[in-house]
Design a protein around this nucleic acid. Structure first.
Lengths: 125, 125
DNA sequence: TCATGTAGTTACTTTAAGGATACTACCATA
DNA sequence: TATGGTAGTATCCTTAAAGTAACTACATGA
């Protein structure tokens, strides 16, 4: 059995598996990894690709993914300076695990909508 | 290309794929689904299995998963009353997609720890 | 009768994630 | 000269998720 549950107070802070999975459970990290699937991208390209993320939040999440070894940050000292982000082999491995989940979610959308409506009708208030 | 990015304000509220993925991106839902892998479990069993979740949060997340069609809630009107939760076929399909991710995370733990230490050493302050 | 277990609900507080806005500093193009 | 693009940082604010604690209501067993 995998150590997913946490059974003492002291375990909670260093439940490693949750810590690794946090690269997926944030609102933006999965999206950033998917955005880098085809080729390395620059900061602005990623931002445009995602659309509704602020610079500050994008920077934070890129740093987090870089820190965990899922992408690299390369500065080309121009001029003009250009910074590009690319998936590492580990990042690509994670991407390959995420893709089935994303495609499946896409297929599930209608079923989930229906299930929600039925639940809300069966459980009013 | 999947509609993961959001490019207008109005799209943001109903980006369906994110809405489905929210069953994975919460702190507890993935853990609950994994907890139900082997057999249906009762409220208290799930709670003991996870360990550090509060009753209130567990209730909320069970309701959310039930609402989206990933698990069923069955009341056996005893006495004593017993409530059991079980994965639906959709819940089980989601579980099968999550398992590779969880096992992989488990394998990655050491690499991630190392990567974090290296990053922190290379980027002090 | 008193403690324990079952499955919750209600009210309040805290925390982390994300958002808004303004700013730097450099460069290119019109 | 001014406008826009590049890649951010700094500061403050809002919100959603989660946590804490107390409570219900019913049942079992000591």
């Amino acid at each position: 059995m995998l150590p997913i549950g946490v059974h003492t107070k002291s375990e909670a802070s260093n439940c490693s598996i949750r810590s690794v999975l946090s690269n997926v459970t944030g609102k933006w990290r999965m999206i950033i990894i998917l955005a880098l699937e085809d080729e390395p991208k620059r900061f602005g390209e990623i931002k445009r690709c995602i659309g509704d993320v602020t610079q500050r939040v994008l920077t934070e999440n890129l740093r987090g993914l870089q820190r965990d070894g899922y992408l690299t940050r390369t500065v080309d000292p121009g001029p003009p300076v250009a910074v590009s982000y690319a998936l590492t082999p580990q990042g690509r491995a994670l991407l390959e695990l995420l893709k089935p989940l994303v495609y499946w979610s896409h297929e599930q959308m209608d079923d989930v909508k229906t299930a929600r409506m039925e639940y809300d009708r069966a459980h009013p208030g």
